[in-house]
Design a protein around this nucleic acid. Structure first.
Lengths: 119, 119
DNA sequence: CTGTATATACCGATGGCCGATATATGGGGC
DNA sequence: GCCCCATATATCGGCCATCGGTATATACAG
């Protein structure tokens, strides 16, 4: 599961959204860092639906435009929670090791390493 | 940056390791979940080296076998820290929204959702 | 001898994603 | 009227990191 797929699940975590709404929510979640392409979004929704992690919830027409709503299944919620745990564990492990790295550098390189670590 | 690449950087975070040692360390970091293929490892090391995040540190022969050591550059440490932050933010955001999901389910489905959430 | 472990290297196939295009409706500005 | 932008769904070719596998070599155990 790559980041775009993860973010799609996260965008659906607290309730149903239509496709384009997922794009907007992912952009919010990622603080503008990730803007899903339609190609990525619909392929991911199709895949997640086929895998049973997402299902179509309803359709409605708003201002002449069809909106197709999707929601997370219970299985999808479990998968999302599990992936979040994995990401958190990876992040914490990497951060812990970087801490060790800063402390173990030789005096000659301490200045450089500290400067880098502060970035 | 995908998980295997991230874990390679993490395995090098606290000091130099040779290729095969990285494979073993990644397996430790990921609690046995991830076992890098040689194809993945060396492609990643080549790529990361080309990108300036990793460099060759030294070579040595142990018991008739050549070991090629790699280490993180300062730039690599910065990139790893940044990615760890992103992963952490994503994980926390997803977990927060899943919390909201559990609380917003209808009474009829509360039992099921809670059971799923406990997994 | 075979099998396993250690160690580096290479390769074809796969699939998720990028970047793009297409269609449709609605609204605003000229 | 036209054009542009936003909203909304859909499709597609190309890319590339990774998977799964193979290869070679040394060393050790049975």
């Amino acid at each position: 599961m790559r980041e775009p797929t993860f973010l799609v699940l996260a965008a659906l975590a607290d309730g149903p959204r239509h496709g384009y709404g997922v794009i907007q929510e992912v952009e919010t979640i990622s603080k503008g860092r990730v803007r899903l392409r339609a190609g990525t979004l619909y392929a991911a929704l199709d895949r997640l639906t086929a895998d049973g992690l997402v299902r179509r919830e309803r359709e409605e027409v708003v201002a002449g435009r069809l909106r197709r709503y999707y929601e997370l299944t219970d299985e999808g919620a479990v998968a999302l929670a599990a992936q979040a745990d994995r990401l958190r564990a990876n992040a914490e492990e990497a951060s812990r090791r970087l801490l060790t790295r800063t402390r173990s550098v030789t005096p000659g390189r301490a200045g450089t390493a500290l400067a880098g670590g502060a970035a």
